[in-house]
Nucleic acid binder design. Structure first.
Lengths: 143, 143
DNA sequence: TGATTTTGTTATCAAATGATAAGTAATGGG
DNA sequence: CCCATTACTTATCATTTGATAACAAAATCA
C-alpha cells in the first residue's frame, strides 16, 4: 500500500472515529451547558488543573472567548478558579463538586454505550484493539 | 487490562484523533465557506451522489437547516442538484466542477500535512499503522 | 526603574448555527 | 380517490460562537 492509499484509508478512519464519537456522546451532556462549554469541561476533567491559556491553546478558542465561557461555567458553579501563589496573573481551574458530578454522569453515559459497543468482542479482540490504539497513538496521532 | 481501562485509553485516543485532525485540516478550507458548509462538502465528496435527507441524517443537521446550507452551496456554484427521474421529490446532489476544484485543493493541503507527519515512519511502521487502522475500523469504530 | 511581555478581562459586534412553524409537491396505501 | 407520509422549502427567531479593540494587573527583562 502506497502512502497515498494510506492517506485515504486514514481519512475514512477519522470519519468513522468522529461518527462513533458523536454516537457515543450525543445527549450525554446536560442541557444546561452549550457544546463549547462541554468541550471545555471535558478538557478540564482530563487535564486539571489548567490555566485559561491552556484551554485557549488546546481548544483553539481565543482568550476573550475562553474567558467568557469559563466565566459562565464559574457562574454555574461547575468549576473553581484558584489563583497561583507564585504568579498572581495565573488562575488554575478545576472542576467543582457539582462539575465533577455532572461530568461523572456524562462519562458514565458514554462509557455504558462504549461497553455496549465492545460487548461482543472476544479477549483476543480486546487485546488487538488495545495494541492498535497504542500503535496509532504513538506512530500517527502523536503530539 | 480491564474494559474500564480500555475505555479511558479510548477516550484519550479519540481526543488525539480530534486534535490531529484539527491540526491537519485547519486553514485547509477556502474562506468563502463556513465550517458547516465545509463538512457538508466533505461528506458529499466522499459519498456523492447524496440526497438532502442523507446529509441531514449523517451530519446531524435538521432538514430546514440542511436545505438552507445546501442552497448557499448551490448559489456559490459548488454543487449541483439533480432531480431523480423515479421519485420527483428527491434531489441528488454532487459536486460541481468548481466544487471539485475546491475540494481537491483542500484535500491536497491536508494530504501534504499528513505525508509530512508520517515522513519518518519506516516501512514496518507504515504496515503497523495500516493493520491498526483496519483492526480499529472493524472492531471498534464500525457502523 | 521603566519598558515590554504575559495573563486575563470586559465590552461590543457580526456571523454562524440551531430550532420551530408552516407550507408545497410528489408518492403510496387502502 | 382520499389520506397519510415522505422529501424538501421558506421564513423567522434565539442562541451560540467568533473576532476585535481596549483595558488592567502582574511579571520579566534590560
Amino acid at each position: 500500500m502506497d502512502k497515498k492509499a494510506l492517506f485515504f484509508k486514514c481519512v475514512s478512519f477519522t470519519t468513522s472515529v468522529h461518527r462513533v464519537t458523536h454516537e457515543l456522546t450525543q445527549n450525554a451532556k446536560s442541557d444546561s451547558i452549550t457544546p463549547v462549554q462541554y468541550s471545555i469541561l471535558e478538557y478540564i476533567t482530563v487535564s486539571q488543573p489548567v490555566t485559561l491559556s491552556d484551554i485557549s491553546d488546546c481548544q483553539h478558542i481565543s482568550m476573550p472567548n475562553t474567558s467568557r465561557e469559563v466565566k459562565k461555567l464559574s457562574e454555574k458553579n461547575l468549576i473553581e478558579k484558584i489563583s497561583d501563589t507564585e504568579d498572581r496573573r495565573k488562575q488554575y481551574i478545576r472542576l467543582s463538586k457539582d462539575g465533577e458530578i455532572m461530568m461523572n454522569e456524562a462519562f458514565a453515559c458514554v462509557e455504558s454505550r462504549f461497553q455496549n459497543r465492545i460487548q461482543n468482542a472476544s479477549k483476543e479482540d480486546l487485546e488487538d484493539i488495545e495494541r492498535a490504539l497504542d500503535i496509532l497513538q504513538t506512530k500517527l496521532f502523536y503530539k
